[in-house]
Simulated assay, not measured.
Amino acid sequence: MKSLFNSQALQRSSIEELGSSSSVAKAIHLSKPTTTVQFGTSLQHLKQVIGQLAQNEVIPFATHGKWSSHELLRYLLQFTGPASVSLTTWAITEEPLRMIHKLIEEGQITEFNCVFDYRTEKRKPEALQFAQCIVSRVKLTHCHAKILVVQNDHWQVTVVSSANFTNNPRLEAGTIFTLPAVADFYKNVIDNEINK
């Protein structure tokens, strides 16, 4: 499935202004959907839901509990190739981390930076301990944001969603952006939190 929105509807001149949170809301103006939303039923159906990635697209999605954030990450890496991954999440569990570790070992993830909610240390100490063994940089702080940024020389992909990095049977929704300015903005948000 192609992007639900016509990429020509994006105000590209405004996208360059993405440098502050106030400009983000104004930067992207979407036309009405050009097709109906299709919902995934598993990782194998992500192709039907997300489709082929293309540059400068905005792709909204809903999971209906049929796939999780780490499965979406694996799917995106099939298009981008090896890439740096930065993420924020309120909750993370061991199974998604094991899949991420495998992607690191396979060379699909070249750098892995994370911001976790500070309560991860008490809620999921085993997951945090595992994460600390595989991340490039990690920060524990007050965090409820769910952001994923995948970057290399050819791709700048951002996912902003309601989903944590857990196996999630609930309805979650979000948006994929293949817009460099959006990736740069959210990567700066993550880096600023890590560097505080």
Score class of each variant (00 low, 15 high):
Val150Glu: 07
Tyr118Phe: 04
Ser136Pro: 06
Val157Lys: 06
Lys139Asp: 07
Thr158Gln: 07
Pro96Val: 00
Thr88Gln: 08
Phe112Ser: 03
Asn168Ser: 11
Lys2Phe: 01
Thr41Tyr: 14
Gln38Ser: 13
Lys32Asn: 14
Asn188Phe: 00
Gln78Thr: 12
Thr110Val: 11
Glu126Leu: 04
Asn164His: 03
Met1Asp: 05
Thr158Leu: 06
Arg12Gln: 03
Pro180His: 08
Leu46Thr: 00
Pro96Ser: 14
Gly107Cys: 07
Val115Asn: 03
Ser3Tyr: 10
Gly19Cys: 15
Ser42Gln: 08
Ser68Asn: 01
Val115Arg: 04
Asn167Ser: 11
Ile109Asn: 00
Lys2Thr: 02
Phe177Asn: 12
Ser7Gly: 00
Trp155Leu: 05
Ser13Gln: 04
Cys114Met: 12
Arg98Glu: 08
Gln132Lys: 14
Thr166Ala: 13
Pro82Gly: 05
Gly174Arg: 12
Ser136Glu: 07
Glu105Cys: 05
Pro180Ile: 10
Tyr75Trp: 01
Val159Leu: 12
Ala131Gln: 11
Lys102Glu: 13
Phe177Glu: 10
Thr166Gly: 06
Glu71Phe: 03
Val189His: 12
Leu179Gln: 01
Val189Ala: 11
Lys187Pro: 01
Asp117Arg: 03
Lys146Ser: 11
Lys47Leu: 15
Ala127Glu: 03
Ile190Arg: 07
Lys187Trp: 14
Gly19Gln: 14
Lys47Gly: 11
Asn6Gly: 01
Phe177Arg: 14
Ile176Met: 10
Thr93Val: 13
Ala145Met: 14
Phe185Trp: 08
Thr88Phe: 11
Lys66Trp: 02
Phe39His: 13
Asn56His: 10
Leu76Tyr: 11
Val85Phe: 04
Leu77Asn: 05
Val157Gly: 13
Gly40Thr: 15
Thr34Ala: 07
Ser3Arg: 02
Thr178Pro: 04
Thr166Phe: 13
Ser162Val: 09
Thr175Arg: 06
Glu126Asn: 08
Val159Lys: 15
Val159Ile: 07
Leu128Gly: 06
Leu103Trp: 07
Asn152Glu: 13
Leu46Glu: 01
Glu121Cys: 10
Thr110Met: 14
His154Gln: 14
Lys122Asp: 02
Leu46Tyr: 09
Leu97Glu: 09
Ile194Ala: 12
Leu77Lys: 04
Ser23Val: 07
Thr141Ile: 09
Gly19Leu: 09
Ile50Met: 05
